Amino acid sequence: MALPFLPDDHHYAITAVTTRASQLDQTVVAGIATFLFDRFSAAKIIAGRMRTLDQLALLQCLMEESPECSGADIAGLFARIRMARTDRNKIVHWLWGKSEHPDEAVSSSVTVFKDGERRTWTAQQIYEVAESCMQSTHELNALMTLKHDAAQRDEIVNALMEVAPKGAGLFDLD
């Protein structure tokens, strides 16, 4: 049931955030599996038991240590991901209320034993959080593709090395 005081644009924007944030979360887990592809069983256990913030920290370390990601602004990417996730939590978990302005809505953190927070949002601001989640997902996928391609190439080289004669020139794949 929709909140009657919340404009439709806000409902749609909130839905976009939940969808894009979910895609981002799944991409983080896929990233861990990608960067630990040779230890997939361990990656499954590790990632499956970690909180999302710990998964982010692990994936950031894996990417920073990966030669395929050298030159990429990994720290900047993960700072943007953390900011998007913080905004996502405010959008998804805070209570929504009416604003004095018709194009804005108010979200508030009402948690026992903590100081409350309050923020007004336009639908466009909420959509920007969804866009940030989607952009981060695309950036992670691009870096995962680099790792996957390099890993796949290494597997091919190792397989060829077992059957090909030395010096055959089959390993100049760069």
Results as ranks from 00 to 15, higher is better:
5 F>A: 02
174 D>V: 06
79 A>V: 02
125 Q>A: 11
150 A>P: 05
85 R>P: 01
156 I>E: 14
145 T>R: 08
130 A>C: 06
89 N>F: 05
16 A>M: 02
119 R>I: 10
77 L>T: 01
104 E>C: 07
150 A>F: 15
63 M>E: 03
106 V>R: 10
10 H>Y: 00
61 C>Y: 15
53 L>V: 15
3 L>A: 08
5 F>I: 03
64 E>L: 14
107 S>Y: 05
28 V>I: 10
41 S>W: 06
63 M>I: 06
108 S>H: 15
143 L>G: 07
7 P>D: 09
112 V>Q: 15
69 C>D: 10
119 R>S: 07
21 A>T: 02
22 S>R: 14
100 E>V: 08
129 V>W: 00
30 A>Y: 11
148 H>N: 04
117 E>I: 10
121 W>R: 03
53 L>M: 12
145 T>W: 12
89 N>E: 05
74 I>H: 01
147 K>M: 13
68 E>I: 11
163 V>G: 10
105 A>N: 11
135 Q>L: 00
16 A>W: 00
170 L>Y: 09
149 D>A: 10
90 K>D: 15
116 G>K: 11
137 T>M: 03
53 L>E: 13
112 V>R: 08
99 S>W: 12
65 E>W: 01
75 A>E: 11
106 V>E: 11
126 I>P: 00
169 G>T: 04
68 E>N: 05
61 C>N: 14
5 F>D: 08
127 Y>P: 00
155 E>M: 12
40 F>Q: 12
148 H>V: 14
84 A>E: 00
174 D>Y: 08
82 R>V: 01
161 M>G: 03
1 M>A: 11
77 L>S: 05
104 E>A: 11
9 D>C: 04
138 H>A: 09
7 P>W: 01
116 G>H: 13
47 A>R: 12
5 F>R: 02
27 T>G: 09
97 G>D: 15
63 M>Q: 06
